[in-house]
Design a protein around this nucleic acid. Structure first.
Lengths: 242, 242
DNA sequence: GGTAGAGGGCTTGTCAGACAAGCTACTGGT
DNA sequence: ACCAGTAGCTTGTCTGACAAGCCCTCTACC
């Protein structure tokens, strides 16, 4: 396996799954074709069959494969490498980078202010609490692909927090202070109108709007994000099954 | 377990997962709370820990839980009952019904015609093949929630097929001829304009567009569907996680 | 010759018990 | 009050075995 010792923090099965995904993306098997059996895969990766099974379940949960009793695991038609997988939570920066494009970010405003009623509700705050509110444009290869309006509770940031030190992705900011968003409840909407976004953007454009509440492993909300993706500039896909 | 012998064809772990989902829906645990350990669950269901682990991985893949080494499996905030879960593939009719609304369908046109180049590509047809093309409006409690433009390869329908007998959902039509769509590769888009849809609809409305290629267990495409959901009339949600 | 049935050999599903590794909370020290 | 160590929980991985499902082939019968 390629990513043997170079992936600390990941479980063994996660590393096997990651390598299998790489091989699938590389076209080692055609859609409809059967992958090697669990026995063979276990031997190939020098792990137990239990670990391989866990990795294969990961693939199936991503919609890449379907495994059936007595038959084997079959590669399905799957999303292309150029599309963002909506099931997996990762920063847009990482997503853009993973697709071979150069991510960028332009902050328009960064302020500490009292939470709006909507933010208070979504972030489970008590009235009057403050949030760090940011307005950013996300770019890929220099072109704007999305506008994002985000809010992070003041309480998750350290007392001596300075808004001017904000840079990079929302995820990176949270991790710097020990908060890790592991899950996000996402609502999907469509929107259009010139009141959305700023700067260079197509006239009369449509947006795919993702309204997300990010939470840490305990379910405590750590961020509320409204991200408007310019239609056509970044493809979203997901595999639904059964 | 409630669904003990009453669920033939399902694996043991699938039945355990189904029961756990029932208990979660019933509110047995609060979001953020820890489920019992794998050992306890195995004892409770009288199955091995391996089976419980498979069931828990199923829950995690649906975004209901997050399980972490040394910590346990934690119930996440999950989508509310009023929203369609985009991970699960089911007919819109079933989805609407499951949410307590009365589904309906108005066919605008049903024709057999040669496939367009786009349909030929998406459905992996050879040039000149025919498709069954339909235009429908989906309703919930009498109000239109979406317009759908669908195409089914002529080849998956019986030779004596009569377009005038088409009624009900696309899934029902396919199942009547032994074809079962188990997976769908879905692209998400935003759209707006008066050229979309017909009849009563809000002026200058936005649509959430789902472009889906449905396939059977072998990966053979059986349907190509472009469904325009009127923004705000039907909430879509999904849970993303790391 | 053609067809239905039995069987073998593959596959995944489930079982059992064991040990490794990660996280939390408590305890005992400074 | 604070900090380090540890006990006791949790999930992750391993091993080897058997059950059960699917497909292909071979055979016996018509």
């Amino acid at each position: 396996m390629i990513a043997d010792a170079s992936s600390p923090g990941l479980t063994l099965s996660a590393r096997v799954a990651a390598d299998l995904r790489l091989r699938i993306d590389a076209g080692e098997w055609a859609p409809g074709e059967r992958l090697p059996g669990e026995h063979d895969l276990a031997a190939h990766y020098a792990v137990s069959r239990a670990t391989v099974r866990t990795a294969l379940q990961d693939l199936e949960s991503r919609g890449l494969t379907v495994t059936r009793h007595g038959l084997g695991t079959i590669l399905t038609a799957h999303t292309q490498a150029g599309q963002a997988d909506l099931r997996r939570l990762e920063s847009m920066t990482d997503t853009i980078a993973r697709h071979g494009r150069v991510p960028g970010m332009q902050y328009r405003s960064i302020v500490l202010r009292p939470a709006t009623p909507e933010e208070t509700a979504k972030l489970a705050l008590t009235e009057g609490e403050e949030v760090l509110a940011t307005e950013r444009a996300l770019t890929a290869d220099g072109a704007i692909v999305a506008f994002s309006y985000d809010a992070v509770p003041r309480a998750v940031l350290p007392p001596d927090f300075d808004p001017s030190e904000v840079a990079g992705s929302l995820f990176a900011l949270l991790e710097r202070y020990g908060e890790r968003a592991v899950v996000a409840v996402t609502e999907l909407h469509a929107a259009h109108g010139d009141h959305i976004g700023w700067g260079e953007r197509p006239p009369n454009v449509s947006y795919l709007l993702l309204v997300q509440v990010h939470a840490d492993p305990r379910g405590v909300p750590v961020a509320y994000a409204n991200t408007y993706f310019i239609e056509g500039r970044f493809p979203f896909a997901l595999v639904r099954h059964r």
